[in-house]
Nucleic acid binder design. Structure first.
Lengths: 148, 148
DNA sequence: AAAGATTGACTCCTCAATCTTA
DNA sequence: TAAGATTGAGGAGTCAATCTTT
């Protein structure tokens, strides 16, 4: 979210500030990844491919990325034209298309991981080097997906 | 951000979880506002108009919304076709275009405010009715715009 | 009919280029 | 020249409709 608009109503303004800060953090990660030709969305997809370490159908990828299939179609389009990901046919089901990482994609992942580690390190240093569990828990609770 | 991808690296994964939770909260506000035909972006703009309470140039609006001018051009396009905002010429500077709220816009703002208050109330109730200052402060610090 | 992928149309955002007015 | 607004192109996301294959 770009900016917390002023709403002098109970907790709403405070929640909007929280989201605004989260947006600023996200922007910084986006810009860090931009330095190596990635974005959070692209990094998210290739991180999944690295994690799985084998060809995976675009549908399963959509599940893992928690987004809609058509979004993956377009994201893979861009990653394919970046040369980081490849589509391949699934011999067992001709409806299905699977994505794999190219060698360049794997290298790019490493670059993204490094740049992210750096930037996050600098951020987290500002609050003493560790993100307290309590913050994560409260945010998850607010989101209604608390683990407890 | 859609989903925190797994990055088994120091604090990075934890920060991504935080952003993912923030995204989930944002989605819920977006959907609440959607019930009255608004979005966070639209609500942000009309909340600024309500706050200012007079015609304001699109450039100043862009500053207040913390976004780029061309974004305001398009947002105002959509709000104008929703009938919530109107453009008017500035008699003092013929380059400038000012935005004003229509009566429908003001009513819609009230609807948005109400629905937001409800939804935020329900969320905040899950953590005891108040968002602790400590969370906001830590998030601002992480974002590098700490007030202290 | 239902699943997998794509396409088209839309919101929301950015940047770069353009056009008008100051 | 610079400031105000718009346009064009593109990234990232959604939804609805389509097409092929199961």
């Amino acid at each position: 979210m770009k900016d917390a608009f002023r709403l002098p109503i109970g907790e709403t303004g405070r929640l909007l500030s929280l989201l605004s800060a989260a947006g600023a953090i996200e922007d910084q990660l986006e810009s860090a990844l931009g330095e190596v030709g990635l974005s959070i969305a692209k990094m998210g997809l290739i991180a999944n491919l690295v994690d799985i370490d084998e060809a995976i159908s675009l549908s399963r990828l959509a599940d893992r990325c928690a987004c809609v299939r058509s979004n993956i179609t377009q994201l893979v389009d861009r990653l394919e034209s970046d040369g980081l990901v490849q589509r391949e046919a699934d011999p067992d089901d001709r409806r299905s298309i699977r994505a794999t990482l190219t060698p360049a994609g794997r290298e790019r992942y490493e670059a993204g991981r490094a740049v992210l580690e750096d930037r996050v390190g600098a951020m987290v240093a500002r609050i003493g080097g560790k993100i307290p569990n309590s913050i994560i828990e409260q945010m998850e609770r607010l989101a209604g997906r608390a683990c407890s």
